[in-house]
Design a protein around this nucleic acid. Structure first.
Lengths: 194, 194
DNA sequence: CAAGAAATGCCACGAACGTGGTATAGTGAA
DNA sequence: TTCACTATACCACGTTCGTGGCATTTCTTG
């Protein structure tokens, strides 16, 4: 891989390592890499931890994962740790070169399967949107309550009387089955309301 | 676009519509489309709602979004609604054809920018916990507050006096820069504290 | 049109909250 | 041994909340 990269116009693979531990000292120098290409199934420190360390030491360095693992958990954790691209090892070498160019251009290179997986995981994040039958006005008021405003402040904001806001809030509590502001706000976030 | 698709080997664009409402009746026939190419800024029913309807009527139909909107919210919602691909309108037509092939092959075609955005959103789901210097006790109390308990209830739960909880709460408010329960709870969710 | 929902408005009262203090005891770092 | 922080505890005051009930005015929608 290093050979191929060095043979490519404008690219240079300055270092190769067998583990994250070996690579870390490199970050004390002034020459920080633009891109790191790494596996995640590595001896010693896991690649996921490695990504975190690298990102900590050099936030601007982009990290592309090249691995055989395609399970949701690995993909998810790698991305959360800061990876900007995720390729599988069955990718032809020219695809890897292409990916490096893409990540440098501000993209996020991924295999077809991985991209599909990522969107799939994404979609799972909010299938549930329990409907409590809140009216538009109620949602609006709830919105301001979540922001931390008092009844009077909400009333001022919406040009309503304090009493009206009070009534709406009563109804909201009934619909959400709560009886405190904190309970309502929690519910909003827990169940992705609004 | 329809012309280009029909000019492509193995593809056929059987219908074109100006709104989701017009397209929906088509799903009562036996010939369900393999792929739908749609914008999301549409007259009448929003494209997001459209995706949900389409997916409801024909779960196996793949949906690719082609639009000018690239804000996080639109992208996120479109994917959650069931879109399998997301392209921006500045994509050259041949890229669109390519995307249709890719989605049929089980992939998830995305522009570079979109792919990058998606990974970015993804990453937000886990990691950071901004540190406001809350002590363990304070976190514990905050936890119960988020659950909607009153000061007295928290005191009972932790075998503390009401006054102690009161003091802790005061300190929490100062550290979080809020002055209402709702504000504190919001902050907890917004910034993934606890 | 009639029925029903939503939005608006008002009152009153006890409970809970937010904020200003003060104070003691323990722990760990400077 | 100070110094700083944390956890604990108490008090008082004014503000805001949660809840009970009631009433009027739009809108939808069948």
């Amino acid at each position: 891989m290093a050979g191929l990269i060095n043979a490519t116009e404008g690219m240079q693979c300055s270092h190769s390592f067998f583990s994250c531990e070996e690579a870390l000292p490199m970050f004390s120098t002034d020459e920080l890499p633009d891109v790191i290409l790494s596996d995640i199934g590595l001896p010693g420190m896991s690649g996921i931890q490695g990504i975190e360390k690298f990102k900590e030491l050099s936030p601007s360095t982009l990290i592309v994962i090249l691995t055989v693992y395609d399970d949701n958990d690995k993909v998810f954790n790698a991305i959360c740790a800061g990876a900007s691209g995720y390729l599988l090892k069955d990718s032809p070498p020219e695809k890897v070169i292409e990916a490096i160019k893409e990540v440098l251009a501000g993209g996020a290179p991924m295999n077809m399967q991985i991209a599909h997986k990522v969107l799939g995981m994404f979609a799972q994040f909010k299938p549930k949107k329990a409907d409590y039958g809140l009216s538009d006005r109620e949602k609006e008021i709830l919105h301001y309550m979540v922001a931390g405003l008092t009844k009077q402040q909400i009333a001022d904001k919406l040009f309503l009387s304090f009493h009206t806001v009070n009534t709406h809030l009563k109804n909201i509590y009934i619909k959400l089955h709560v009886n405190t502001r904190s309970g309502a706000v929690s519910k909003v976030y827990e169940e992705h309301l609004l």
